[in-house]
Design a protein around this nucleic acid. Structure first.
Length: 276
DNA sequence: AGCCAGGGTCTGC
DNA sequence: GCAGACCATGGC
């Protein structure tokens, strides 16, 4: 991986195990849109980003080296050695097959509150509708960053709202869960930053004190927002995978990387519908 | 048209 | 501890 700054852009060459479509549209984040075949844009950490990829060259448009180093390098998980992880996972034939379908996925390091709130919305829901609800959440209660692009609203902002205010989301029974999470986070009753360094089981237990947060939603927050790379969220697809392909348990080679394995398997399962 | 969706809570055994 | 009803909404 070779990083250079030119013409207000950041250009990353020799980047392997990364594709925009798989990373930005694999169901781990819900706010990225394709502009054309090679270009995507969206908002994270309150900043708008447009990025494009041709061959194995990634370009982040209109980004300073400082912004890249402090925000996007970590967000896109560019420093993790996925090549090595894939080779470790590949000692199991099923995981190897999954990585061959989904080898361009990176686990995004999202903002803790955005990840938690997004996956509360995700429960018993489908990805297109999740995206719609989150779009309305940001457009109604976030800040406009540049034309038509909004930040994810803070927990404080949402905590100041009522259930009636949230009706515009059309999020159904999830609205009361969103409110409770926002209140617990904004009051400091739950300190998301602290959960990053906490033992994963203790952190999960704290998250599950939120009304409407069970093990699966908690594990998504841990994996996608709190840096717990060994969290293993079990949604309906992963449950099918575990039953049909693994006899209930992940192979031992996935130890320490179960979150990454999980995302490869999720993408693989949805893509193939397990009709394999 | 009806099943399903990156589930969780509550109730009743 | 565990199965089953129920929860809102809309994508396909």
């Amino acid at each position: 991986m070779k990083i250079t700054a030119k013409n207000n852009n950041i250009v990353i060459e020799e980047l392997e195990n990364f594709t925009l479509e798989q990373t930005l549209d694999c169901g781990q984040a819900f706010r990225w849109q394709a502009i054309d075949e090679t270009t995507w844009h969206g908002v994270a950490f309150g900043k708008y980003l447009k990025l494009g990829m041709c061959e194995n060259i990634l370009t982040l448009y209109d980004v300073s080296l400082e912004e890249f180093n402090t925000v996007w390098k970590s967000y896109l998980d560019l420093e993790r050695d996925y090549k090595n992880i894939i080779s470790i996972l590949s000692s199991d034939p099923t995981l190897k097959a999954a990585t061959s379908y989904a080898g361009g996925i990176r686990i995004l390091n999202q903002e803790p509150w955005e990840a938690l709130c997004s996956f509360i919305i995700s429960q018993n829901n489908n990805i297109p509708r999740i995206k719609g609800i989150i779009t309305r959440l940001c457009e109604n209660f976030g800040e406009e960053i540049c034309d038509g692009h909004y930040s994810f609203p803070t927990a404080e902002k949402i905590a100041s709202l009522s259930l009636e205010d949230l009706a515009v989301l059309r999020s159904g029974f999830r609205a009361k869960y969103i409110l409770d999470a926002a209140k617990k986070v904004s009051s400091g009753e739950i300190n998301l930053e602290k959960l990053k360094t906490m033992d994963i089981d203790a952190a999960r237990n704290e998250l599950m004190t939120i009304y409407g947060v069970g093990a699966k939603v908690a594990d998504c927050a841990l994996l996608f927002g709190l840096g717990h790379i060994d969290a293993f969220p079990k949604d309906v697809w992963i449950k099918r995978v575990m039953e049909r392909l693994f006899d209930g348990e992940l192979p031992s080679c996935a130890k320490g990387y179960s979150g990454i394995a999980q995302q490869y398997l999720f993408h693989f399962a949805r893509l193939t519908k397990l009709e394999i």
